[in-house]
Amino acid sequence: MTASLGAVVAPRRLARRLSTIGPLGTVSAIVIGIAALIAVIGPWITPHDPNSTDGITLQFQSAPGHLFGYDANGRDVFSRLLAGARTSMLGPLIVVAASITLGVAIAIAAAWRGGRFDTIVSSALDIAFAFPGILLAILAAAVFGAGLFAAVVVLSLAYTPYIARVVRGSALQERSKPYIAALEVQGMSAWRICARHLLPNVSGIVVAQGTTLFGYAMVDLAAISFIGLGVQPPSADWGVMIFENRQGLAIGKPWPAVLAGLCLVGVVIAFNILGERLARRDAGIR
């Protein structure tokens, strides 16, 4: 998977890979690719300083050289959108990476051990499902103070069951396949069989589920930032931008908030579609 977008892959092979996720999936992958690129280089290509309040007297006004004009605090909207891509996507990235690590470890342990251990883990996951991530994040902000870090930690834990449940199902199915038994009778350790055989063979569903969760995490983190408990102003972040420019919606100047919202929605939808296509492809292979 990691090499698929690299330059080492021949264009024809890349095209064949993309064809397995369909045209809509391909568009989604391209949208995500562009968003990821901006997240990496965004802060360096802003035409103006995203935190400069030069246009403080020109709130919500357009101005030459400012593509989307000024925001509520007289900052360049376009520059803030570019710079905001990084903070908006970094949080979900960490959430997904952390919940995958934790979720996959729990799922494979449960599928491998089975029996009572599996029953206990599965019940614990079902209970964990009941906790809404965003409420926990608000609670964490109350305890540890507002900020991206607390929100990311809490959401990582809250999303772990979503990964673990799906992967457990897949791993359980894989575990019962004869080739796993054949490895066992060769005297190979459980650890090795899990890491080198079981894990790679459930990686498809892990990637699919992780992609979908990325979208969810992005919405949750933007919402947490919107209510002021996540990314703190004046940092550029799409959720923060919606919050900062909300008065514009009332006075007929919705563009700064709407643009930030569109960026968010566009990327989230792309992640959802791609996640769903990857899951469907994975199911097709099985």
Partner: peptide, 12 residues
């Protein structure tokens, strides 16, 4: 060592 009936399903 074990040799199985259906080699295809017993090899990753």
């Amino acid at each position: 060592s074990m040799v199985f009936q259906d080699p295809r399903s017993h090899i990753n």
